[in-house]
């Protein structure tokens, strides 16, 4: 009983950590996208088109991070239910 309690607690801590890392990663994805776009723009002198395009890439990358995490959660739920 004690063992299972500590196990479930550890699972909670683990999921807390992996979800809390999501926010920073999402923000940084957009920031990196804008940075790459801005750098390419100043290289090719095409401001603002590449900045906007790479910002959209960054936003999609942030969404993909959520999507991957959601898929992982769904898979873990499935595995827990089949136990």
């Amino acid at each position: 009983m004690v063992m299972s309690l500590s196990d479930s607690k550890r699972d909670v801590v683990k999921s807390l950590i992996s979800y809390s890392s999501l926010g920073l990663e999402m923000g940084l994805s957009v920031a990196i996208g804008i940075a790459i776009g801005y750098f390419l723009d100043s290289f090719f002198k095409t401001y603002p088109y590449l900045t906007i395009i790479f910002m959209i890439f960054g936003i999609v990358a942030a969404m993909k991070t959520i999507y991957v995490l959601l898929k992982k959660i769904a898979k873990e739920d499935e595995r827990d239910n089949s136990k």
Partner: peptide, 18 residues
């Protein structure tokens, strides 16, 4: 490819920054 690259670059940045 650019989406994945941005996603992969965000990982070490967020790890180190946190």
């Amino acid at each position: 490819v650019p989406i994945e690259l941005i996603g992969h670059m965000a990982r070490p940045l967020s790890l180190g920054l946190r």
